[in-house]
Write a protein that binds this DNA or RNA. Sequence first.
RNA 1: GGGCCCGUGGCUUAGACUGGUUAUAGCGCCGCUCUGAUAAGGCGGAUAUCGCGCGUUCAAAUCGCGUCGGGCCCA
Length: 1065
Amino acid sequence: MNLLSKRYEPLALEEEILDFWKKQKIYDKTLEFRSKGPRWNFLEGPPTTNGFMHVGHARGRAMKDAQLRYMTMRGYNVWRRGGWDMQGLPVELEVEKNEGIAEKGLIESDVGMDVFVQKCKELVDFYLERWVNDSIRLGLWLDYPSAYQTRKDDYIEHVWHFLKLANENGLLGRGYRVNPICPRCVTALSGHEVSQGYMVKTDPSIYVKFKLVGKENEYLVIWTTTPFTLISNEMVSVHPKYKYVKVKVDGESWWLVEDLVVEVMHKAKKESYEIVESLPGKKMLGWKYEHPFKEEVPFHQVHNEKYMHAVVTGTHVTVEDGTGLVHTAPGFGPDDFNVGREFDVPVLAPVNNTGKFTSEVPMFEGRLVFDTNPEVPRLLEKKGLLVHEETLDHEYPHCWRCDTPLIYLADKSQWFLRMTGVRERLVDENTKVEWTPEWAGTGRFGDWVANADDWCISRSRVWGSPLPVWVCDDCKEEIVIGSRKELKEHAIKFPDEFEMHRPWVDEVVLLCEKCGGEMHREQFVTDCWLDSGIAHTASVDYLKDPSLFNQLFPFDFITEAVDQSRGWFYSLLYTSVVMHDKAPFKACVSQEHVLDAEGGKMSKSRGNVVWAEDALADIGADPFRVFVLTRSASWSRMNYDKKEIDLTRKKLDVLWNVVLFTETYMDLDNFKFDEKRMMKTLPKANLEDKWLLSRLQTVIKEYHEQMGKYLWHQAGRVLLEFISEDLSRVYLPLVKKRVWLDSEDPKKVMAYDVIYYTLQTFLRALNPFTPFLCEKLHKDFLVRFAEDLPESINLTDMPMSVDKLIDQEMEKTFEVLQELRSASSHARNKKGVKLRHPVAKVVLIAEDEETSKRAESLRDLLLDDLNTRDFEVQRTDVMAEFTRLSIKPNYKALGPRYKDMMKQLVLKLQEVDAVKLRRDLERGKAEVVVAGKKLKLVDGDVEFEESLPDHLSFAESKIGKLYVDVTRTKELEAEGLVRDVTRRVQVMRKELDLKVEQSIDLVLYFSDEEAVELAEMFKVHLTNETRAQTMELVGPKKQPTWKKYSYVKEWEIDDLTLKVGMSPL
RNA sequence: GGGCCCGUGGCUUAGACUGGUUAUAGCGCCGCUCUGAUAAGGCGGAUAUCGCGCGUUCAAAUCGCGUCGGGCCCA
C-alpha cells in the first residue's frame, strides 16, 4: 500500500510536518542529540520588529536555516539563539500614525510619554509574534523562547556598559555634527534613510555677488540653490588649483572661475565683457568681502575672525555648475562644516530642529527656512546684489517617511563615537574575517571602515535605549553610567516604578560629585544600530554571567544583506573591538536583495512587496526555499517571479515521483534495506548499480565542498541535478525491467538496495534545503523499509562521501552511454524510426581507444537500451564505403555558360561517376560529354554531397559517428508491432486503474490479417507483458463477441486499426 | 559628487578572476517521439551583433578606458 499521496502537495505535507515537529518536540531532541558535539555558533542578526517579513527577509532566513541544519547534521552542537531588534524611529512613526499624533510635541502633552512607550511595546510585540510565526512556517529552527530582545532592560544595560567603556577609552564625545534632519519628524536621519528619499525638487537657482572689501566695484560671484542659507554664509570657497578670472562688465569687476565665464555671462545676459586678470585660486585666500545681510543679522556684526567673510580654499569645489566660487555656510552642510573647522570659523546655525529660524535672525524668526527661499532673492535684488535668478529641478533628499525636504543642519549637542584611535584595529580585525564573497569584505566593507566618519549615536527621540549621560545643572560636569546598580548608587531621586526607557529614566536625578549639584539626563536615545551591534555580548547575558559568552565568542558565522555592511556588520565590529579587542564573527556571508519580477526594487510605496506569509501559503516553504537558495548566489540580486518558482517546484516533483515508484514495488516485495547485503553483493552488481553509487558519492563530495564555502546555490544545484539527470533519467529506466521480475531475484533486491541507499543518503544531504519534504520521506518511506531508523531525519548524521564507491571510469563510461543514446535517437529521428521498433544494427565509429572500450563494455546494456539487434564499435570508418557521393550542379556558374544545354547537362551529371569527377576537378581537367560536345568543368561548377543508402541513418556525436541500420525484416516488424500493442493495452489498464499485478482476459482485433500473423510470433511475450490470463488474436475474418469484455477501445497504429477488449479477473 | 555589483535568444541564466574550436542550460514556441513512477522524459528546429563605443591582442562575452541602463552603498 502506498502511504505517500499520488502527487507532491507541499502545503498539506508541510502542515503535517510542522505538527509532527511540534508534537514530537523534534527540535529539542536534536539539541539534546548534539549536546556533546563540538560547538558551532551562529549569531542571529535581529530583524526589526516593525513591518512584516517579506520574501527578501525570508531568503536570508532560508540561508541561515540551511547552514544551521547542515552543521547540526555534521554533528555540531549549534548555538542559534533568536533575536529581535525592537526599538527605533520607524516604530515611533507608526505609533504616531496609529494614534493620530502629527508632531512630536503632542507625544508628550496629549498622549503622555509613558502611554506612547506602552503603545510602542504593544506594536513591536505584535510584529514579533508575526515574525516568529512566519519564521516557523518557513522552517527556520532557532531558539525562539530564549531570543534576545533589544528593548529589554537587561539588554539595554549592555549598551550602557559599552558606552561607559567607550567613554573611559576617550571614544565617546559630543560636539557639532551636521546632520540631515527632517523638520516634520524632528529627527536626524541616518545616511541609509537619506538615500531612500531622493526625489526631484524644484528650487530657486540664484547667482549673487559679494562686494570685496577695500575694492571699488569689485565682486565675487557665487551660486546657490538654497537661498535661505545665504543668511548663514560665512565664507566663499575656491579650488586652490583652478584658474579664476576678473571680468570687466558694465563698469564692474566680477571674479569667477575661468571655465564657467561664458555660461554665467550668457545667463546674466551680458553680451560684452572682458577678462582683464587671472590667477590661481590659492592666491585669493583671505580676500575679505562684505556679508550681504550684515545689517539684518547681529552675528555677522559681532564676528570678524581672520577667515570670517573671506575667501578660503578647498578641494571639494567643482566646476560642474555654478561659478567656481562656492558659498559656504558651516551650519548647513557637511563639507561647509569641515571647511569652517579647518579655517577656525565659528558656526552660525540659527535654525531649530523644526526647521524654523531662531531669534538670531530677527527678520525671519519662527519661519520655516524653505518658506523664506523666495524672499531672499528679493532682498538681494533691492541691495543690487542679484546677478541672475532661475529655477532648477534637481534630486534632493526628502524624508523617506513623510516626504518633507531635509535640511542639513549643524547641531552642537550631538553625541558620537570616534573613529580616531580605533580605526586601525577595526581594519585589522576585519582582515581576519572570512567573507563570502571575498570582495564584500575586503573591498566594500573594508574600504568603508577605512574611511568611516565618527558615528553619531544620539537621537532626539523616545523609543530607544536611553543615552546614559547625566549632566550637572550647575557645573556642567558629565557622568556616563554603566549599569542600573551604578545608577542607583548615584541617585538622589529614583522613581518607584523604573525601567530603562523614557520617561522613567528621565526622572532619575543624580548627585554631582564635583559640586554637589543635581544632575539630569541628556534627553537622547541612542541609534538603534548600537542596540543590535552589542548583540555579540548582550544576547548571551554577558553582564550576568560571562561564562556562556566565553564559550561562544567570537561567533563562527553571521549572514545578512548588503545594506547591513554599514549597519549591523559595522556596529558589531566597532563595539566588539572596543569591548573585546576582537572581531565578533569569524565568517560572514553577504546577501543581496530580492527584487520584483521585473527587477525593480520592492517597496511599500510601489505596492510590489511580496510578503513571506503569502508566498509560503501560496507555494509552500520547501519550493520557496529551493528557489531562493539555488536560483542565484547569495550575493547576487534575485528577481522574485512566481512563474520561475513553479519551474523549480517541478524538480521536487521528480524526487517525489521517484520515491513513489520505488515505494510501490518495495511494498509489493516486502523489501527491507540491508546495507551489509548490498556491499557484499556489490561486486556482482550490474554496471548501472555501480555507476549510480559512484555518481552518488561524487555528488556528495561536491556538495560538501560547496557547503564548506557557504555556496548554497552550488550545493543545491548539484543535488537537484543528480535527482533528475542521474537517478530519474538514467538509472530508473535501466532497472525498470528488473523490478518487474516476479521472482525473488537477487538482481531485483540489488536494485532496491541501491535505490534505497541512494535515497537515504540523498535525502539527508538535501534536508538543509527542503526540511519538510525530507522529513516526510524519511518518516513515511525510509523508516518503513529499514530497521532502526530514528524518528526524524534531523536526528541522523550528514552522509560523507564513501571514496571506495567512487569509480571514475564507470562514470565516464556512462557519459558515453548518454552520448550514444542521444545520437541514436537523432539517427532514428531522421528516418522516422520509433524507438519502439527494433533496428538491425548500430555501429559506432569511436573517436578514440578509450571511448571504444567504454562503448564495448556497455554492449549488453545497449542492445536493450537502443533497441537494436546488434551493436558494433569500430575505430575506422568502415561504413564510409556505403556512403554515396552525389553531384549537385551549381546553376549560377553553369547556366550563363551552357544556357540551352543545361537540361541535358544536369541529366548527364546524375550518371557520371562522382568520385572520378571530383578527382578530375582537383587535377583541373574535368569534362563531360553532352550531345557529342565536350563540356569543360572547373572548380565551383558543381558541389558534392555525401549521402547514405536508404537503410542507413547517421548522427554525429562528441564520441564519434553513429550509424543505425534500419533495414526492416518480418521479425523486426513483429517486435515493433508487439510493443505498439503492449503500450496501448498498458494505457487501458491504467485507465481502469488496475493494480500492477492484476490479471485480465484479453482480446486483440487487427484490421489486417498480416498483423495477426506477426502478433502470433510473439504471443507469449504479449501475454506476459500485459498480465493476460487468456488472450485471443483475431483478424477481419472473425469478429469477437465484444460484450464479453468490460472495457473495449479502438486504436489507430499508423494504417492499422487495433481494437482491444479486456476484463479484469 | 564618490565607490561597489550587474547588463548574454521572448524570459531566466552558465561562462568572465586565468582571453583561444560552433557561447551553457532551463522555460516558452514548432515538429517528432517515449512512458505501468512521472502535470515528467528524449530527439530535432527557430530564436544571441554577449547593453553601446573605443582600445590592447594573431585572437575579446572574458582584459583596459569611456558611455548608457538597472541595483546597492556612501557623501
